[in-house]
Design a protein around this nucleic acid. Sequence first.
DNA 1: ATGACCTGACCATCAGGA
Length: 270
Amino acid sequence: MLKIHADAALLLVFKVKFISWNVNSLRAREPLVQEIIKREKPDILCLQELKIDDHEYVSNFFLQFNYQTITQTQKSYNGVSISYNQNLDVTDLTISELNKTQARNNIILLKQQGIAIINNYFPNGNPIGTDKFTYKLEWMDELHESIKKIKDEYEIVLTGDFNVIPEDNDAHDIKKYKKDALAQPESRKRFNKLLNLDLLDVFKNEIKKLSYTFFDYKTYKFGKEEGIRIDFFLVSPFLKSKIMNIKVLKEYREMERPSDHCPILMELNI
DNA sequence: ATGACCTGACCATCAGGA
C-alpha cells in the first residue's frame, strides 16, 4: 500500500525547465537559439527583443524543434515569444493593453498546473525626463494592474528583461547608472510593487555565485566583468519552494556573435 | 574618456539599445 502511494506520488511529479533570454534579434541569434534548445531542452522558452515583424517566421522557426509558440511582433524593435513543449496543455492569456503600442508581453497558462507564465520586455526608458521614461513607468503600472487581477487565481512565473537595476549591488558600478532610467527611484519603486504582489526574486543576492545577466558589447570586449542584473524570474511562494536549479548561462555570452544578455534558467519540480 | 559595439533598415548613416 505504501509502495503504491510512493509510485503514485512519483507519477505526479512535474518537472519543468524555464529559460528566459533577451536575444537582441531572433534572426541574428538563430544559431545560438538552436544551440540552447539542443543542449538544454527547455520546456518553456521565453524570448525578448525578436526585432522582426513576422509571426510565420517566428512560429516556424520553433516548430522545427517541435515547440509551439505564441508571439507578439513588431518591425525592427521589441517583440516577445513563448515557445513550449508540445505535450503541455496551454492557453494564451496575453493582455492586449500591454501590447497596445509596442510588442512587449505574452502570457500563457499551463492549465494542468495552474501556472501563469508572464514574459516581458520592459521599456528601457532612457533618457530620463522624456516621454520614453514616462512610458516605461506607465507600462510597469499597467503590468502591475494586470498581474493583480490574476495572481489569486494562478501560481505566477514573471520573467524577462525588466530593464531595472533593483538595488545598488545589482550593478558592478552603480555610479555609472545614477542618471540611467534603469536605476531611478521611480523604476525601482515599481519593481518593488511587483514584489509586493507576493512574488520572490529567485536570483536575489546570488550574483557572486551566478553572474550578472547583461554585459555591454562595448565594455565586455575588453574582458571586463562589468555587468548588471536586469533579467529575472519572480515567482509565487509555492513555486519558490519547488525550485531545483537556477543558473545564469553565461557561456552564451562568450560564444561567437552573442546577445548582450545572458540566458537565465530555472527548473521546478512540482 | 561625452569613447568603445551590435542590430535593422537599407546602401550611408542613423535610431535604439542599456
